[in-house]
């Protein structure tokens, strides 16, 4: 069976990508919320937020990128839910294809869609005055962390996509993910928060990921944050992947 895994995944990813390209509105709607947050925080609240030196948009962008990913994966869950409940999935499952390629196709095409959203958000940030002197290597590292974070959240999104009872249910799971950056170092330094909130903020994954990306973009030494960030992403990826596969196998047997 696995001899066809790569070929089948490529064919099905091509299908999902066509879906995405033919409904570009999903890319736009994915970017609206993060862009609104960015406008709101830079031009309304930002003046009152003291983040030390540097422009606030530079401080804010890493968190906004994570929100973009979180809002993007809600579409992964939505698209997977629709597919699972359509006749074409029965056809795929009654065909001699590598079965896990059906999920991989969704994950890979979502990765492409989210990368496009991220590019749009970064372009808007540039218009708003975001600047970085980071070199090629630092940007590659940022791209790597974001890709890993996206993969982890996409596999997480596969779980509600497979198990939700309604399309709304499949989408709603991403709301907490979108709001997690608010209780982190994404918008304000954690040192301003009261004790318990600060403790939560400092030990949740978003803070270490935001800090690592911010340090890379502002050419600061990254310290231990990047390893904590990578550990969170890889850990979440593995756990989500295993859980998604177990649910998938149960669902299709």
């Amino acid at each position: 069976m696995n001899t066809h895994f790569f070929g089948d995944t490529a064919v099905l990813t091509g299908r999902s990508l066509r879906h995405i390209m033919r409904s570009m509105d999903t890319i736009i709607t994915t970017t609206i919320m993060p862009i609104m947050f960015m406008l709101l925080f830079v031009y309304v609240f930002g003046g009152a937020i003291n983040t030390g030196s540097g422009s606030y948009v530079n401080y804010l962008l890493p968190g906004i990128l994570l929100i973009t990913v979180a809002s993007g994966v809600s579409y992964t869950a939505f698209r997977l839910f629709l597919d699972m409940n359509s006749g074409i999935f029965d056809r795929f499952h009654s065909m001699p294809i590598a079965r896990s390629s059906v999920l991989w196709a969704h994950v890979l095409s979502s990765l492409v869609a989210i990368v496009m959203s991220l590019v749009v958000v970064v372009a808007v940030a540039l218009l708003m005055g975001f600047r970085s002197g980071a070199g090629m290597l630092a940007w590659l590292a940022v791209a790597g962390i974001l890709a890993l974070f996206t993969l982890a959240l996409t596999w997480l999104a596969v779980i509600p996509g497979l198990s939700a009872k309604t399309a709304d249910g499949a989408v709603v799971f991403s709301y907490p993910l979108v709001f997690l950056p608010f209780i982190s170092s994404a918008f304000v330094p954690t040192s301003t928060m009261p004790g318990p909130v600060r403790a939560f903020a400092e030990y949740q994954p978003v803070t270490s990921i935001v800090n690592a990306i911010r340090d890379l973009l502002t050419q600061q030494p990254v310290g231990s944050d990047i390893w904590i960030a990578l550990a969170w992403c890889v850990g979440l990826l593995i756990v989500s992947y295993i859980a998604a596969m177990i649910i998938y196998r149960r669902r299709i047997s």
Partner: peptide
């Protein structure tokens, strides 16, 4: 081969793309 109760075709793809996809699979 299964032709299910609900037409098992991809609505967003063209007729040709549907056929090519299944042939590839």
């Amino acid at each position: 081969s299964l032709t299910g109760q609900f037409a098992a075709v991809d609505e967003i793809l063209s007729g040709r793309e549907n056929l090519v996809m299944v042939a590839q699979l």
